[in-house]
């Protein structure tokens, strides 16, 4: 047997965007050799979410619908994935590189005694071997890697790098029964710390503020621009360490690694550790009053100027567009 099995993640009843991206990439790669693409979905009462997967290219959905899987646990979900692997016998197992996927992929890999490739940004198929590109040294270098002939090849895909596109089609649902997983580490509670705000790790547009905004109160200006473009608010470490904004907003080596379609950095110098978190963004915009700020080296567009003079008219111009 061959093919690609994709672990898909849901939030409430929706399949997450990063998982649809992973299914779509699996479909594109599998088209060459004509491999089957399957998905595995775990949870309690999640059968409804399975139907949309066919449209993205999954021909089969392995469904682990089990009251033990109501909340995520690496041990429980690994049992579900391994069961699907036994049935599908895939050449590769894909995960979206979300908090859940990055946690689960290595646990599954170790359970089936193979290695894993994390945070992959490009994939090609050479025979049965997936050749992956992944940033290393915080994006200062790119490595071309594979799983040294071991199969199945366990791979997590960086969110927002691969396109999700519908191809039309429908999936057959296969129930995975008799899982009875041993779960020791149990999620007792999911606290919403986002306050309804979009998380930078998931946002398609991010506007980040750094020390150049002068004080915590001026995040209001950053937020205004973010709201105007429908984006999330990010930050440099300097302002997180200063207590101007919470760590969950931090982008960079010790914060979140993001790849939005648009990243606007205002009053951020562009230290190597900040670039580590955002240099794979599709379009980068810098607003900085220092023409020599390193952020301009990675910027696609930039304005040399005082952010307090540039951002308000930007917000006005953007509002005019809609």
């Amino acid at each position: 047997m061959a093919g690609i099995l994709v672990f898909v993640e849901r939030r409430d009843s929706e399949i997450r965007a990063a998982s649809l991206q992973a299914v779509s990439e699996a479909r594109r790669l599998a088209a060459g050799p004509g491999w089957p693409v399957a998905a595995v979905l775990a949870g309690d009462g999640v059968a409804g979410a399975a139907s949309s997967l066919g449209g993205y290219g999954a021909q089969k959905v392995y469904l682990a619908d089990d009251s033990n899987l109501k909340t995520y646990s690496a041990e429980g979900y690994a049992a579900a994935v391994v069961k699907a692997v036994e049935q599908a016998q895939p050449s590769a197992i894909f995960f979206a590189g979300t908090a859940m996927g990055r946690d689960l992929a290595p646990r599954v890999a170790a359970r089936i005694r193979v290695g894993a490739l994390a945070d992959v940004v490009e994939l090609t198929l050479e025979g049965e071997t997936l050749v992956a590109r992944r940033p290393v040294y915080s994006g200062k270098a790119l490595a071309t890697v594979d799983t040294a002939g071991k199969s199945p090849q366990v791979i997590s895909l960086r969110p927002n790098v691969f396109a999700a596109d519908e191809a039309g089609g429908s999936a057959e649902v296969v129930n995975l029964d008799g899982l009875s997983p041993t779960i020791r580490a149990v999620v007792k509670e999911l606290k919403d710390t986002g306050g309804g705000e979009l998380d930078v790790a998931e946002a398609d547009i991010i506007v980040s503020g750094g020390r150049g905004i002068k004080g915590p109160e001026n995040f209001a200006l950053i937020r205004e621009l973010a709201d105007a473009v429908g984006g999330a608010v990010g930050a440099s470490r300097a302002v997180v360490d200063a207590g101007w904004i919470e760590h969950k907003h931090q982008v960079g080596q010790t914060g979140k690694v993001v790849s939005p379609s648009l990243y606007i950095a205002a009053g951020i110098s562009g230290a190597i550790q900040h670039l580590a978190g955002m240099s794979s963004s599709k379009v980068i915009v810098a607003i900085n009053k220092d023409p020599d700020a390193p952020i301009f080296k990675v910027a696609d567009y930039g304005v040399v100027g005082d952010l307090f003079d540039v951002i308000p008219p930007m917000v006005e111009e953007i509002k005019k567009l809609s």
Binding site: A99, A185, V186, L190, T193, E202
Partner: peptide, 9 residues
């Protein structure tokens, strides 16, 4: 996790 915190025992 994205947008939240899981409390695990």
């Amino acid at each position: 996790v994205e947008g939240g915190q899981e409390v695990v025992e």
